[in-house]
Design a protein around this nucleic acid. Structure first.
Lengths: 186, 186
DNA sequence: ACACACATGTACTGATCGGTACACATTAAA
DNA sequence: TTTAATGTGTACCGATCAGTACATGTGTGT
């Protein structure tokens, strides 16, 4: 049960599920693209759903780490960092591999709120909310929880519209709105 | 080619695609739920994709009409109507059949920007944007196009988060943010 | 009553789905 | 060197996918 093969599998699955979708990606496609046999896949993950959950876990960790790191790097204070999250989004949108948010898409394909895939998607968004609420608290802004929610509305909206229409101006416009909301809470 | 059967088909398809998803819904399921034979279906619509496009067209018309009517009914001026769109959203989110936005989900399953399904989804969002831009113009607000974009960001974010976490407070929070943005443009 | 055009339902196609049976290769302990 | 345990690949399973061939209505003009 070589851990490296397991890693190769989940890595490739992450890429293919993200680019092609979950229902649209068959396990056979992963066999073809990884040269890992189906038996080995099902030794590592009992079902396709387990594999999807593993890819989402990896994606959650990587995405949040990168997102928060970029926002931190592009700012000098918690208040600035809240705004800089929209610069981080802009960078993401410009990536030619950008195809919306994996968790929005996952919850689109697995709509039942009690479905594990839906639940981990919701958890991902909650963790991002916590991150921004903490920033709002550090910045000593009014109603940090509500402010974080409102900024997240702008972020999720930006992701959706950047995916639908292309990235031009979307993140910038969201950033302008975010500044207005942050200033109103100062 | 009875038009009533055609209507029954697209009606049922709309419901099932919305509740269950596109890839997850087979044509056989529609046969089972409508008692319309597969042959008849494929006489009316050459492919599943054609049927999906028909359901999206119907959904677009109905949704926008209802959305705009509700916003109009809940307000007394273009400026108020911009804000009232968030009350219309709140009503929608509270419907127990609410399962996110059909077009966000469609673009999640058909990600290629050149795919017809993706394109009609983008067009739907553009039409909503036009509606709000007109309102902003009638209300004589500053930068009507940018304001409409920012309000739409809040709306799309609200849809996504209401679907992920439930509707509690989402639309209300978005409305508060919208008021701040509208007032800033007054 | 008849013939013809067309709407409809059944039963099927090859392809693909998620998942598995089983034969074989490899390794390590005895 | 033998034996047992485990990892791997192939070839397959029944179910379901989108789509179709074909036989059987069914309505209309004569």
């Amino acid at each position: 049960m070589s851990a490296s093969k397991r890693e190769e599998l989940v890595e490739k699955a992450l890429e293919v599920f993200y680019q092609q979708g979950f229902h649209a990606t068959g396990m056979d496609k992963l066999v073809a693209e990884t040269k890992i046999s189906k038996t080995s896949m099902y030794k590592h993950y009992k079902t396709k759903e387990d594999l999807i959950l593993a890819t989402l876990k990896l994606r959650d960790e990587r995405f949040r780490e990168n997102f928060m790191n970029r926002a931190t790097a592009l700012s000098n204070s918690p208040k600035q960092e809240l705004i800089a999250t929209f610069d981080a989004l802009a960078e993401w949108f410009e990536d030619k591999k950008f195809k919306s948010c994996m968790f929005i898409k996952a919850s689109s394909e697995y709509q039942d709120p009690d479905h594990p895939i839906h639940m981990v998607s919701a958890e991902h968004k909650k963790l991002l909310h916590v991150y921004m609420q903490r920033l709002a608290e550090k910045a000593e802004l009014k109603n940090p929880k509500e402010l974080a929610s409102q900024l997240q509305l702008l972020q999720e909206g930006a992701i959706v519209l950047a995916h639908l229409h292309g990235c031009e101006g979307v993140a910038e416009n969201a950033k302008i709105a975010a500044k207005a909301l942050v200033n109103a809470a100062s």
